[in-house]
Design a protein around this nucleic acid. Structure first.
Length: 573
DNA sequence: GCCGTTTTCGGCCCGACTGTTTTCAGTCG
């Protein structure tokens, strides 16, 4: 069992204990253990095998170490199983609804005997929740809204999780010595933010098909088989997503890859052009003027259709076909273009690693610079920096910089945009920093006008260079706050403030659609990770995916510049 | 349940906001 799965069990234990009404400290201890395990760089399995004591790990004591060992040998632990028997698991689903915490979920369960989202939705529609003590009309509406959001992401997983599964499937294929060619198509190849179905295209000889199917069905992640025949496997995986494997002959590989990658709209547009050229494109066969045609690459297919090759991330039917016809496709940004990261946290606030460790990791990634942007003073839970500590940090970083050649650490802050439109630090403090990222962390529920005004006001500040995670969404967990993105884009342009694409896997904020809009208006973008530990600096790839889907080119993104150019192009105070 | 001692038990990030109340519990970051 992998760390993230073990962490998942401890997180569930902490939630079950919370619903049960256990001590908040015990609840917190399990949650902390889960977080600690999730951020480990080494697999617990290996540590145990090598005989290391797990007590060394922060947040793991005698009791939890025992449970980890039990989980590693049996796949679960008795304590967890007992809790699950005691408390229906449906209650954990209900916890995901914003506004419902452990206490309210418990009330719903004990008063109305409701233990599933479906029953809860029914009760809310029948206006039964508002009569419960501590509930009212607004809570009832919030529940319905939350369920609506949950349903939108039901059966979908984060792109990063889906990619993890594809890696596992690749490893499985490799270890099974299957002689096949495999590539992933569909949403995952287009880098869609939430994945409903993982599609794999597998090519093998006609004779091997039977054997290939029987081996693939042994992939340990399969939790339910939906449909199997010689050409297609459809299964449900244990992390909550569909996997479809299409098995084709070698010669049909690229046709199948092509047909299964583009969105419906993209393919429909291409088909229309193809037909006019005398091409018929079917599931795994292309016919040109009555003759079968088997391409050796996708590029060849586009060539036959008569337009330039379109990369998977653009195949959404958002105007890319028209641009291709005009030979005016964007030359989208790629990972190697990034020269630095301008939003990250350290152990000075709520990050795990030291400034030096973050810098070292950044150098390993080949960066030329980073900005340290810990939280500002009001964010107490994140150990936000006081003015004094910030000054101390600035002094510390300036000294540290003298040790480096060809690498710079910029001083900075992620300053809170407080509920009353005021920034958490005065200009007197901000003026001494290289990078000021302004973000909203509180008062999400204010109305659209108020939230928009908070961001607009922040952009008017001469020292604010970047707006961090502009919509505040958490994929599958929380809708973004209500903002008028058009006015924000307009103001960003006017004040020369950059908008962030936050690469954290569950944020991806700005979204591809908004980032494209911003680019079209000429607003500059920065792609940051918001890393809270050094390993998370690698999340930058997620932001690059978003940027590519948003048609961003190198020139649209400021942290592709050298430090000198970056400082020149960033808004000047 | 973890941690760190003042070594065996007491403390454990904290404050704002919201929707309920009619003075505050619950949720959230």
């Amino acid at each position: 069992m992998r760390n993230f799965e073990i962490a998942g069990i401890f997180l569930k234990i902490s939630e079950l204990l919370e619903i049960k009404g256990e001590s908040v400290f015990k609840v917190r201890a399990y949650k902390k253990a889960a977080e600690s395990i999730a951020s480990l760089k080494v697999e617990l399995k290996d540590l145990v095998e090598m005989g290391y004591s797990l007590n060394e790990i922060e947040g793991i004591g005698y009791a939890i170490e025992g449970k980890i060992k039990e989980i590693l040998t049996t796949g679960t632990c008795e304590f967890y199983e007992r809790l699950k028997r005691e408390i229906p698991e449906g209650l954990l689903e209900m916890l995901k609804i914003p506004g419902l915490g452990a206490k309210k979920v418990k009330t719903i369960y004990s008063e109305l005997n409701i233990d599933s989202i479906e029953e809860l939705e029914k009760a809310a529609k029948e206006k039964k929740l508002r009569s419960l003590k501590g509930f009212g009309v607004k809570t009832e509406q919030a529940v319905l809204k939350g369920i609506f959001m949950l349903k939108g992401s039901f059966g979908k997983i984060l792109l990063s999780t889906a990619q993890y599964l594809t890696e596992e499937l690749r490893e499985f294929v490799k270890s099974s010595n299957l002689n096949i060619k495999m590539e992933f198509a569909g949403e995952i190849r287009r880098r869609v933010e939430l994945i409903e179905k993982i599609i794999a295209i597998v090519a093998c000889s006609e004779n091997d098909k039977k054997e290939v199917v029987s081996v693939l069905l042994k992939f340990p992640r399969i939790s339910k088989i939906i449909k199997v025949d010689e050409d297609k496997i459809e299964v449900f995986l244990d992390l909550g997503v569909l996997l479809e494997i299409r098995i084709v002959e070698e010669k049909s590989f690229f046709t199948s890859l092509f047909v299964n990658t583009g969105s419906e709209k993209h393919l429909a547009q291409l088909n229309k052009i193809a037909e006019s050229q005398g091409l018929q494109i079917a599931e795994d066969l292309i016919i040109i003027k009555g003759e079968n045609y088997y391409p050796n690459s996708e590029e060849e297919i586009y060539q036959k259709i008569g337009i330039p090759y379109i990369i998977p991330e653009l195949r959404e039917g958002r105007g890319e076909v028209e641009k291709a016809l005009e030979n005016d496709l964007p030359e989208v940004i790629s990972l190697k273009d990034i020269k630095g990261d301008l939003h990250m946290h350290t152990d000075w606030s709520d990050g795990i690693n030291t400034i030096e460790e973050m810098a070292k990791k950044a150098m390993d990634l080949g960066y030329e610079y980073i900005a340290i942007t810990d939280h500002s003073k009001s964010l107490k839970i994140a150990n936000g920096l006081s003015v004094e500590r910030l000054k101390e940090q600035i002094y510390y970083i300036k000294n540290l910089n003298e040790k480096f050649n060809n690498f710079d650490i910029l001083t900075g802050i992620e300053v809170d945009i407080l509920s009353d439109e005021v920034l958490d630090f005065d200009d007197e403090v901000l003026k001494d920093l290289d990078i000021v990222v302004a973000s909203i962390h509180t008062g999400f529920k204010q109305d659209r006008e108020k939230l928009t005004r908070r961001i607009l006001k922040a952009m008017e500040n001469p020292y604010v260079k970047i707006i961090g995670h502009p919509t505040g969404r958490l994929l599958g967990k929380r809708e973004g706050y209500e903002i008028d993105i058009d006015r924000i884009i307009e103001k960003a342009l006017e004040t020369k403030t950059a908008l962030e694409i936050n690469s954290s896997p569950d944020r991806l904020d700005l979204t591809d659609v908004y980032a494209k809009k911003a680019k079209e208006k000429g607003v500059k973008i920065v792609i940051n990770t918001d890393a809270h530990e050094s390993g998370a600096l690698e999340d930058i790839k997620n932001g690059i995916f978003v940027a590519r889907r948003a048609w961003l080119e190198k020139k649209d993104v400021l942290n592709t510049r050298s430090l000198k150019e970056l400082l020149m192009e960033l808004k000047k105070a």
